[in-house]
Amino acid sequence: MLPALILLIVVLSFLTDGLLAKSNIINVFSQSAVVAIAAIGATFVILTGGIDLSVGSVIGASGVASAWVMSTTGSLALGIAGGLFAGAAIGALVGATVAKLKVVPFAVTLAGLYVVSGCTTLLVHGKTIGPVPTGFIQFSIDGPGGVPDSVWLAVVLYVLAQVALTRTKWGRRVLHVGANVEVARISGIRVARTTLSVYAVAGLFSAIAGVVLTSGLAGASASMGSPLLLNVVGAVVLGGTSLAGGRGSLLRTGIGVLFLGFLSNGMSLLGLQDYDQQIVTGAFIFLAASADGLARWLRRRSTARRGPSDPQPQAAGMATG
């Protein structure tokens, strides 16, 4: 996917004015930070063959939790801790339902989306929680080298996550569970425990994203995260991580996030209306996902014994691990 990203940037820089200006590039990274962080958690979940539809709701819930704690206790640290705890707890609950009760992730996280969103909105009576400390708002506006702290945070988290995936036992377990649950189980991996941990980790990253979003918006509302689900899953898919699980990396997701970020930025610079941008984004997500399978299909056209290639055209996120 990296060549595609580079190509995109090159083409866009010819078509537009100022895409490669330093302030614009910083702009792209800064606007992608929240999605990027949430996409880390989503990548882990998708690597196990699952899916997390509740990302948006957890972002809202943890943002609200952190903003609320901040405004009642006046403490930034407590607020952040509160938000992170809320997200991780929700994630663990979802994970437990998937792993122990063996409910399909699609359904659990869909239910989670509703329940979490409803609870959060109810608790805040539909209002927005704010204001938040000015120092907190600065986190998303400025930082070393003119690059906002939120971007540095995202970068650090990506490095840590990639290391966790490739160098730790936990990461290897995640990959094995995603590749083949049966084999993983037989080889002694505690599948249920790994699955639960993955969703808890996803909840934690959604929470970090929620806290960063609260900083960026100077306040938290229950629904602020719901439009992000599309971008988060889209970024993972664009990056090339397979929905079937077992194949992928944080690096890929990072490239997917940047692809979406530059695409959106480029379209804005081109003066494309919002709705036309949606059409283009949808087309790109589909094309990126199909390029791989399409190539394989074209090769196999003459001996069409199987229908479309390996990733069966069924609903993803059906693995119950």
């Binding site: 996917m1 990296l2 866009l12 003066g271 494309l272 791989d292 399409l294």
Partner: peptide, 19 residues
């Protein structure tokens, strides 16, 4: 990667038209 790039160009060209 070549396949994707091909599609990327096609759609970016479409974006130009839309623009």
């Amino acid at each position: 990667s070549v396949g994707i790039s091909r599609y990327a160009v096609a759609v970016v060209a479409a974006s130009l038209v839309l623009a």
